[in-house]
Simulated scan of single mutants.
Amino acid sequence: MSTFRTQDGTQIYYKDWGKGKPVLFSHGWPLDADMWDSQMNFLAERGYRVIAFDRRGFGRSDQPWEGYNYDTFASDINDLIEHLDLHDITLVGFSMGGGDVTRYIGRYGTERVSALALLGAVTPIFIKTDDHPEGVDKSVFDDIKAGLRKDRAQFISDFATPFYGLNKGMTVSEGVKTQTLNIALLASLKGTIDCVTAFSETDFRPDVKKIDVPTLVIHGSSDQVVPFEATGKLAAETITGAQLKIYDGAPHGFAVTHQQQLNEDLLAFLQAR
């Protein structure tokens, strides 16, 4: 099993498949690197080196009590990039993982980065504030944390409905729903709760302004978890030259419901570099 240790001694698990230009994936909440298996296999078969890691507290990585904030997540990514000595990387971040890769650029720049893809990402800012009135109200995130504390297994099981748009005409297999729950329950409860605070309250607007590489923004028009108008729309408008793709009717979990479309779009974006 491939692992490395971060600056604070946390052991992080990662996958490293294929050969070619590197593509580094950062997963969403409350998942792990396995969410990317389809995209990774597809791109590795087409000549790319694909790397995905389990965020600290999730999957097969260590479960420290602290460190669930975006400065630490960005530092972990930097440690992985240096561990593998990666250059000319395309960073791909889904949901809260979009925050990881954006904060990485904000802190460490783009010397090693050639392109960026933000998929259903929480950037530039998720929560409702005085200067971001289209954001999601804090009470929503408070309710999520309360649900996790009360009965995490049932909360995550129910969360699959809006995540995959099952109440909006989308369908996924029973296997996908089972896998989603199993992955989520591998994670640290503390990390799962703390990450809700991190992805909801972190302001990435200063980081987004530092993005100076070709960027692809993909968002579902029917995203009930990370609403497009509050996040992806603003990211695409803020990042110079960003390419925006809106998946009509797609939910938050479009990496599953629109798997082939996403695979082809990522490949086309990579081939254009």
Rank of each mutant, 00 (worst) to 15 (best):
V217R: 14
Y164A: 08
N263Q: 10
Y247K: 09
T197E: 14
L267R: 02
T197C: 05
G98M: 04
G99I: 07
P206C: 01
D194K: 13
E66G: 11
E201I: 03
L189S: 06
T192M: 06
P124A: 03
G135Y: 02
G191C: 09
V122G: 02
R107A: 15
R152G: 02
D212G: 14
Q154N: 15
K128F: 06
N41P: 10
R56M: 10
K233P: 13
R273Y: 14
A272G: 06
I77F: 05
G135D: 08
A52Q: 05
D32C: 07
F73L: 14
L262S: 12
I105T: 08
I144P: 13
L166M: 04
T231H: 10
G18R: 03
R46G: 13
A153F: 00
T10N: 04
G57S: 05
E134L: 13
A187P: 11
K190E: 01
D37W: 07
F42I: 12
I239M: 03
H83A: 06
T90R: 08
I81A: 11
I156S: 11
I193C: 12
Y48V: 11
T102A: 03
R56H: 04
S173Y: 11
L148D: 07
P162Y: 12
D131F: 04
G169W: 00
A44C: 08
H252V: 01
Q243W: 05
G169Q: 01
Q260T: 09
D203V: 07
K138E: 09
G249A: 12
G165C: 00
Y13K: 02
G241C: 13
V101Q: 05
L86R: 04
G253A: 11
R112K: 08
S26V: 14
L31T: 14
D62I: 10
S157P: 06
N78S: 00
G18W: 01
Q39V: 00
E82L: 03
S157F: 10
P206F: 01
G18P: 06
Q154F: 09
F42N: 13
V213Q: 11
E174T: 12
F53W: 15
P227I: 07
G147N: 09
A235C: 12
E66K: 13
K128I: 14
L244N: 04
I105H: 08
P22N: 08
G57K: 02
E237W: 03
G253V: 00
F204I: 01
D79P: 00
T10Q: 02
G220T: 04
A146H: 07
K210D: 12
I156W: 01
V140W: 11
R205K: 01
A230M: 08
P30L: 04
K21S: 15
T90P: 09
N167E: 11
G28A: 14
I211C: 02
T3R: 00
G98H: 05
D130Q: 10
W65N: 15
T178A: 12
V176Y: 00
G147E: 02
I156P: 03
R5H: 10
Q39M: 08
V172A: 11
K145T: 05
R49K: 05
